[in-house]
Nucleic acid binder design. Sequence first.
DNA 1: AACACGGGGCA
DNA 2: TGCCCAGTGTT
Length: 341
Amino acid sequence: MLAWYRAQQRDLPWRHTRDPYRIWLSETMLQQTRVENAIPYYERFLERFPDLASLATADEDQVLKQWAGLGYYARARNLKRAAETVVRDFGGVVPQDPERLRALPGVGPYTCGAIRSIAFGQQAPVVDGNVRRVFSRLLAEKSPPDALLWRAAHELVVGPDPGLFNQSLMELGATLCSPRRPDCRPCPVRDACRGRATGDPSSFPEAARRKPPRAVQASCAVLRRPGRPSQVLLMRRPSKGLLGGLWELPSHDSLDSDGLAAAIRDRSGLLAEPGDRLGKLRHAFTHISLTLSVIEFEHVGGRLRGRPAEDGSRARWCGPAARRDLPLSALMQKSLRLARL
DNA sequence: AACACGGGGCA
DNA sequence: TGCCCAGTGTT
């Protein structure tokens, strides 16, 4: 495995460092996210936040801005909170012991093992989706229980370079031992693989059945500021939940434009009436199939109440510069584009 | 144990 | 367009 990895590994930005912060950032970005997708975010994030201290003292909006478009935004909020904890409690030095590491928000069993082995050289196991698939095939087990996978990873990570070994396992799963069409010919462990011996390694592991996404109808408002038409009303979503902490055109979970007007009034203090529908967008989340109606609104009274609510939501008028500066989801970037903003 | 949480690549 | 991917935190 080590020889194969040394010869065949992809050249990735986080493979040129053992800085715990950079390893931690890369592992966090790689959760649920493909390597090619994460690379530009990783580079930009480090330009903006070169170390733990700069991340700890940043505004949450600035951190989310760097994350915008990558998804699963709790990862960014947790990473920032964890950075604050490390600076405050550990003098800015990432702790090496598993208990303290694991206690940081966003650091679960996988990330803990990855930081320990890759950054600190400890013999700590990792089990991610790649490792799960590689082991499932090696053992020809359709759905090996987590405990078995972690035990196997623990028993195998005993060599001189645990970080390289763990990465070799994950690299194998990400490249040759791919989900659909594994390429066994160049595999360094082909002779030990019971899945290959069955003649159909791709049948391992058994595919998890997923629920179909639920259909959601929603609407959002384009409300221009009276006298300053280049500015529109944007709102910050509550810190928790879907797209937490990101900014958006005022939205609510129904096609009903009067309901949307009521939501605008309740959350901003502004009175507005619906006008033309600018268009309809479809956007697929893992668990939601969203149809979003973008509706032009006209201001008819009231003044903006900018005070943030308890849940972190707030409203403000935003011109083009502010819109470039605030974190917007992929969906909202589509919506602003539809509205020619 | 089940569920919430994004986005992009690919057929 | 529909399918696929798969860590952490919460309930």
